[in-house]
Design a protein around this nucleic acid. Structure first.
Lengths: 345, 345
DNA sequence: TTGAAAGCGATACCAT
DNA sequence: ATGGTATCGCTTTCAA
């Protein structure tokens, strides 16, 4: 038998029938692509006869036609996409709720929220990958963007850049949230209650240092010069890690602890109680984020509440910024941070 | 002065300098668009002289050029985007961690995960809006998609559709997770412990019924014909709602409660204890999701653990499906659901 | 080594 | 009432 060498007999894989385009619909309906576009978009500026409409709709349904968003927005020159880079750390309850509310609110007014998970990129590289998607607005949670980054986004067509950061970022609508304030508030409170050797939980989970760093720094800053001592306490978000830390308590000799977070403070408080430490008698405990679990603990946990902006308000800010690209430096104001004193301190 | 009538003097709005394109870069560098593409993509099939490279790079930097992802993937005919519709409800800790891990794992192997927040759409309408983005794979958490939906996605170019649902969805890789099983497991356990009047917390938050319905049904089903009674207990995720429910306890006369979730079970357990109810003496409590807080409660909370697939494993499944579009009906198997007995029951 | 040009899919102007 | 066609930004043959 003779093998034909030139044509290696293409194995003809399952023949993945190509994705239908508007041209296919037009062909099947016996009309032009323009007509297809008119019909499917209900263009009011042009009248299409009812029979034609029907034929187009039938053809589209038969082929299972779905328009191509990229092609559409390429042609249109804009999109209604609001991009939020997904955080490097698994979202806590506070942030999950925040994103969810914002998403709802933005959907209401016609935007599409996209959480973009591009882990492993940093700084300008990350910013550029966001800009490639040409979002109409970008909402950055955390200090991951600089003034230059904002400029890149703006030049790429973003009408609004909203940043949640400790300091104002030029060109962006900055929601000021300085995690050092959280630490300061907790430290001041503990100091006022007469505590002088204060531990600060520092999560060992990587990516968390973005928040834990400033919080610890805030505590240190607040207590500088008061004679009070500050001890950093590395801890993982597990029962075991909390138990180990509690086991070392006698040698640490602390009379208070800022637990970074309600989610870290609580396991530690539990572990301490299990070893016979009285809260707040022997050790005062303060958490943060004011989660529901803080209220469920016994004693109820004192916590630093962070009042993130409500979804509709933030959505409205984005919407206004999109319509008035001029108002760049509008300061939406600082985020409220407040101590909620309960029984643990 | 003579006005040229054909040009109606475009009002020239604030002149938002148009977004620079590769053509602009080419112009500034004095080369063709092709050369720009070669240089910026480091095309190996073609050699560009070092001086030219430099000029192109300089021009790109000067203009702040960022490539247009939509145009790129339109031309390429494919993308590496894995789309996950954002759930209608704020994500709990279990799901947040799951998404985060999966995102990390997919990023490792070159995919981009996008959580798409298109609230307010349902069924086929929602599916079509996902298909418009032409993702290479779609991962649907929950029963929000049918066999027809999968077909639409596949026809739109999706190589893999992974579904987390109670029943196998034809055409998709289905990870079977029947929330009724969660209810069944809890119910069986409580019945074995001799409980006969069993309450089931049903979250009032909207969107939650997607999971609470099956869980309640599972409890009912498991106890059908045993003579045990089942009482649905509407409750919000707040301390107050839990307290109200606890206040009605005497008239309810229940000896056990399945709390839907650790996050609902715990506030209720607390409220009951506050009213002098002994756990598990008077009332047995079972939660679900096996969160850390279940272990922190006193007594420690019995919980139904749901072992979601690990990020890397699932990422690998997606990757294989993308490369072998044929293996459509591969069953990744059911998700493990297991009771973790602690002290509350 | 570089450039001209075709085309990806959809839309909107201008004719017919 | 429809159709032809230029265009959006980019990649990639094919020629030069």
């Amino acid at each position: 038998m003779v093998q034909i060498p030139t044509t290696p007999a293409p194995p003809t894989p399952p023949a993945p029938r190509p994705v239908p385009t508007s041209a296919d619909v037009a062909r099947l309906a016996g009309v032009s692509r323009a007509t297809v576009s008119y019909v499917l978009n209900n263009t009011s500026a042009v009248r299409i006869s009812e029979p034609t409409r029907q034929r187009v709709h039938d053809a589209a349904r038969e082929l299972g036609y779905v328009p191509h968003a990229a092609a559409r927005s390429l042609r249109a020159g804009h999109s209604r996409m609001v991009l939020m880079p997904a955080p490097a750390v698994a979202a806590g309850p506070l942030y999950s709720q925040f994103v969810h509310d914002l998403q709802q609110a933005l959907s209401q007014i016609g935007y599409t929220v996209v959480q973009y998970g591009a882990s492993g990129m940093h700084g300008q590289e990350a910013v550029r990958s966001w800009a490639e998607l040409r979002p109409v607005a970008v909402l950055v949670p955390g200090n991951g963007i600089s003034a230059e980054g904002v400029a890149v986004l703006k030049r790429s067509g973003a009408k609004a850049v909203v940043v949640l950061a400790a300091e104002h970022v030029p060109g962006a609508h900055t929601l000021i949230l300085d995690h050092a304030d959280v630490g300061r508030l907790a430290a001041r409170h503990l100091h006022e209650r007469g505590r002088r050797r204060i531990g600060v939980v520092v999560p060992v989970e990587r990516g968390m240092d973005m928040f834990s760093g400033p919080r610890l720094a805030g505590v240190r800053e607040e207590l500088a010069g008061t004679g009070a001592e500050v001890v950093a306490l590395p801890m993982a978000h597990t029962e075991e890690s909390a138990a180990e830390l509690a086991a070392r308590w006698p040698e640490l000799g602390l009379d208070a602890v800022f637990g970074y977070n309600d989610e870290y403070a609580l396991p530690l408080a539990r572990a301490l109680q299990d070893r016979g430490v009285d809260i707040p008698g022997d050790v005062a405990v303060v958490g943060a984020d004011d989660l529901l679990i803080a209220r469920l603990a016994r004693p109820r946990l004192t916590s630093v509440a962070i009042r993130l902006p409500a979804g509709p308000a933030l959505a409205d800010l984005v919407d206004r910024a999109v319509h008035r690209p001029g108002t760049e430096a509008e300061h939406p104001g600082a985020i409220q941070v407040a101590l909620v004193v309960r029984e643990s301190s």
